[in-house]
Computed example of a mutant assay.
Amino acid sequence: MGRLDTVIRENRDLKDELEKLITIVRENEAKHGGFRIVEYAFLLSSSLAEITEKPLSYLSEIFDIDRAVLFLNSDVLDFERKTDNLADKIFFHPEKIFKYFFLEKRPYSGKDTMNIISEFRVEEEIGSYLIAPITENGKIIAALALFSRDPERFEDSGSMDFVKELSFVVMVALKKLHNTEIIYRQARTDFLTGVYNKMAMAELIGAQINRHQRYGKGFYFIMADIDNFKAVNDKEGHLVGDNLLVDLCRGFREKLRASDILGRFGGDEFFIIIPEDDKVDIKAVCAKLTGVASQVFEKTGYAGIAGISGGVVAVPKDFPEGAESVGIVKLADSRLYESKKNGKNRFTGIES
C-alpha cells in the first residue's frame, strides 16, 4: 500500500503542477490577446482624445497598471491643442525634458520616485514605474509611462520586452495622427502668408456659430480688402505685392489676440473672426487693423496710395433669428462694398 500511496501522491502533485502550468499558459494567452487589443486600439485611434479613451485605458485595465500616460515632445509632435494636458493621460513637454531624463535611449524602471523628474511625476502614489522612450530615426518623440502602486510590478524582464514592442506601435500611431494633421493643416493654410485660407473659413465660422448656440457667446466677422492693391501690383510687380501681403498678415497677427482668427479669402482680401467677450471693442480692433496697414504702406512707400477697407458683421446682433455661414459672409462682403463706395479706407458695420 505504501508504494501505491506514493504513486497516487506523486500523480496528484503532478496534476497540481500541470494545472498551475495550464493556468499560467491561459494567463499569458489572455495577456497576449490583451496586448493585441491595445496595439490595434493605438493604430486605429483617429485622434489624441481617442488614445486617452481607449488604448491607454485598456493598458490599465488589462495589465493591472494603475496608470498609463503618454508624454509627447511638443517640438516634434506639434499637435493643435488648447492645453498641454489632455485628460491627465497625455502631456506635452519641450524636447529638452526628454533629453534630460533619457540619458540613454532605453526604458527606465524602478521604485525610487526621486529618479523621476517632476515633469514626469504625474502619479502621487507610485510603488514602481516603467518609462520607455518612443523614438523615430534615433530621435525621442514621446515617452510611454506606466505606474503601479505595487513595488514589484515592473521587476521582471518580460515587462521590458513588452514595453519595447509596444513603444514601436505607439510611435507608428502617433506619427500617423501627426502626419494626418499636417496634411489637414496644409489644406486649410494659405501658402503665401501662413494664415487660414478660404477652404477653412466656413468651418471656422461654423465653429463660432456652434459656440454661440451652445454658450451664448457672440462673435464678429470682418471682411477686409486692400485699397488700390492692383495699382501697386501693376507698378511694382507681383513679388512686391506678395511681400506686402505677408507684411500685413504679420502685423495683423501681432495686434490681434491669440483667440482671434485671421485668414486670407483670396487675392488681397482677408477675413477675421473676433470671438466676443466683455473686453472686445470692435472699433478699437478695426483701428488697430488700419494702423497696421498704414505702417506697412508707409514703410513700403505707398502711404496715401494704398489703404484698407472692411465690412463688419456682429453675431447675433445682425442675425437675431439665427445665423449661417453663407449669410454672414454675404453681409460682410456687402458692407465691404459700401466702404469702398463711400471713399475707402474705412470699416462699415461698426456703428453703434
Rank of each mutant, 00 (worst) to 15 (best):
M1R: 10
L4F: 07
N11L: 15
L18F: 08
K20T: 04
L21N: 11
I24W: 03
E27W: 01
N28E: 07
N28R: 10
V38R: 02
E39F: 02
Y40W: 00
Y40H: 10
A41I: 00
F42Y: 11
L43F: 01
S47G: 09
S47N: 08
E50F: 04
T52M: 01
P55V: 08
L56E: 04
S57N: 11
Y58A: 13
L59G: 02
S60D: 14
I62Q: 06
F63S: 05
D64F: 14
R67N: 05
L70F: 05
L70H: 05
L72E: 02
R81W: 09
R81G: 13
R81P: 09
N85Q: 05
D88L: 11
K89E: 05
P94Y: 07
K96R: 13
I97K: 14
K99S: 12
F101Y: 15
L103A: 09
R106A: 11
R106P: 01
R106Y: 04
S109K: 15
M114I: 00
I116C: 03
S118M: 03
E119R: 01
E119V: 12
F120P: 07
E123Q: 11
E123Y: 12
E123G: 02
P133D: 11
E136S: 11
E136F: 10
E136H: 13
A143L: 01
L144V: 05
A145S: 15
F147E: 00
S148A: 09
R149F: 00
F154D: 04
G158D: 08
V163Q: 08
V169C: 02
V169Q: 01
M171D: 03
L174F: 00
L174Q: 06
K175Y: 01
N179R: 14
N179H: 13
R185N: 14
T189A: 08
D190T: 03
F191G: 02
L192C: 09
T193C: 04
T193Y: 05
Y196S: 13
A200C: 05
G206F: 08
A207K: 15
A207V: 10
Q208D: 06
H212R: 10
Y215F: 14
Y220L: 03
D225L: 05
N233Q: 09
D234I: 01
K235A: 12
E236I: 05
G237Y: 05
H238K: 08
V240N: 00
V240H: 11
G241C: 07
C249E: 07
R253A: 13
R253M: 13
A258R: 15
I261W: 10
L262V: 00
G263N: 12
G263L: 06
G263R: 06
G266V: 06
F270T: 12
F271M: 01
F271V: 00
I274F: 07
P275Y: 09
E276Y: 08
V285P: 03
L289T: 07
T290G: 02
G291C: 04
G291R: 09
V292D: 00
S294A: 14
Q295H: 07
V296W: 03
E298Y: 06
Y302M: 02
G304V: 10
G311V: 03
K317S: 12
A323F: 03
E324G: 12
V329W: 06
K330V: 07
L331C: 04
A332F: 04
S334V: 01
R335G: 06
E338L: 14
E338V: 12
N342D: 11
K344R: 15
N345K: 10
T348Q: 10
